[in-house]
Simulated scan of single mutants.
Amino acid sequence: MVRATSHTAACDTSGHARPVRGVLRRSGGPPVHDRADLSRSQVQAMLDDLRRTLRAEYGTDDERMLEARWRRARRIVVPVRFHVLTDGRHGRLSKAKAKRQIATLNAAYGGKWGGADTGLRFRLASYRVTVQPAWFLRPHVYERAIKKRLRKGGPGTLNLFTAAVGVDVLGFSTFPQWYRQDPRNDGVVVDYRSVTGGTYRHFDRGFTIVHEVGHWLGLFHTFENGCQTPGDGVADTPYESTPAEACPRHKDTCPQRGADPVRNFMNYGWDDCMREFTAGQGRRLRAAWAAYREPRRAKSARGKA
């Protein structure tokens, strides 16, 4: 699958350029999952911030050591506020479909299809339908207005919005490192046709939301930075110079050890072919959760360590 190579940016209210986190497609082709449009320096800065935050809270940034210290026998349960935007005729997803998407999240993050169990689970905390044609048709333009009106909860609450994101994009997400500076803009926005049981061929199993929630929880693309350090910053996802296209059986694009992780949820590719997170990605998710999305537990855990 060929991705657009040009970088697009939008300006926030402070006047600083920020990446447009969306899904791009080849002209005339089907939609694809997403491109978190970050530079190598941005990725490195975000990884450095995570390490600094973990060291400040726990005295170490070694994720394996932190796992042993936390003794996380119980799972992290993420409350989801499911916001359905509609113009009155289109996009009105039922509560049953929202529950089905939550089940998909739990299966993906629980390793049901062969990957690692990340230790994260999701529960539907609320479901709301909002009839607002302009918001529904142009969620990129009205992102701040939408979230200002509808978003609820703190850093550990996933606000998920469905709308007609468009034929060029399927979704966009914020990262946990951004919450402190811009909490009102936190959340995930996806095209309603890409949910579990949607109408987009090859993108109808709900894995766009799985992918975008991965960003919201702190993961980058597996092909981030190509074959260059730091890659995606996770040790057990091999370097990858180009994203997966459609449904490849095998792909190896970097000289470092390991074939490209073409089945990983944080790659590009059809929903038909995605199936896993790695153990390292699970540790990264839990570390980022403790650092950014559950600060009270992080401080409590530090005191008991």
Rank of each mutant, 00 (worst) to 15 (best):
A259H: 13
T5L: 14
N159I: 12
G153M: 07
M65C: 02
S94P: 04
L170H: 06
R144Q: 14
T242H: 06
S39Q: 07
H16W: 04
R35P: 01
V188N: 02
D272L: 05
T237P: 15
R283C: 01
R69N: 02
P139T: 09
R81E: 05
D49K: 14
T229V: 14
A17Q: 10
Q228D: 14
A279Q: 12
V165S: 00
G214F: 05
V84N: 00
G282N: 07
R128N: 09
K304N: 09
N106E: 03
G22N: 03
T253R: 05
G226D: 07
E240A: 07
H33G: 11
Y58T: 07
V189S: 04
A4V: 13
R293Y: 02
L38K: 01
R100W: 01
M266Y: 02
R123W: 01
L285R: 03
A45T: 11
I209G: 00
R89L: 12
F265A: 00
T104V: 11
T222R: 01
T130V: 13
Q228W: 02
A17V: 10
R72L: 15
G59N: 12
G214H: 07
W289M: 11
L38D: 00
P295D: 04
A107Y: 06
G114K: 12
V165N: 01
G59D: 12
F136T: 08
D186L: 08
T199L: 15
D272R: 12
V210H: 03
S126M: 06
V165E: 03
R69M: 13
Y179C: 11
E212F: 00
D61W: 05
G303H: 09
D37K: 08
L285A: 04
F175N: 06
E276Q: 12
C247W: 07
E245M: 10
R21H: 08
P243S: 07
Y292W: 13
H211W: 02
S41D: 15
S27L: 13
R286S: 02
A125V: 10
Y192R: 03
K299V: 15
N225K: 09
K97L: 11
A134C: 05
A9F: 11
A17L: 15
A36M: 15
P139R: 07
